[in-house]
Amino acid sequence: MTAKIAFDEVEVGTELPARSFPVTRATLVRYAGASGDFNPIHWNEKFAKEVGLPDVIAHGMFTMAEAIRVVTDWAGDPGAVVEYGVRFTKPVVVPNDETGALIEVSAKVAAKLDDNRVRVDLTAMSAGQKVLGMSRAVVRLA
């Protein structure tokens, strides 16, 4: 594991470069195929509404996969992630148009731990709502 960020160079409060990730219906169909999660709430509007959702929603695991990219792109080596956990607080609603939805992710170093590890706290928003809560990664830096 070879993170490109040195432990000594970061402080509590250091912000990671924020990113925005677009998601359309086509993104969800593709993710369904790659992940094997074919739950119709992620591609069938009629079904989603029948079970009480406002519209088709993104897979929670898709949002989780996007959010950690802020950390893996920063650290350089995705293998430097030693822990990653989230709570799915609100769904990412994806309308059937060209723009779809946007997942906005920001992150900062929340604690410096032993063994060159840091805890990074992530925030993921979509349409003004917090879509991930308790979102934390532990990363081993160089």
Binding site: M1, T27, R30, Y31, A34, E66, R69, D73, P78, G79
Partner: peptide
């Protein structure tokens, strides 16, 4: 999977890049 989440990190697709990271 990496393409489905739009993640172009070479560690997922390029053996040499992955080896360079150990």
């Amino acid at each position: 999977f990496a393409e489905a989440v739009g993640d172009a990190n070479p560690a997922y697709t390029d053996t040499e890049a992955a080896k360079a990271l150990g």
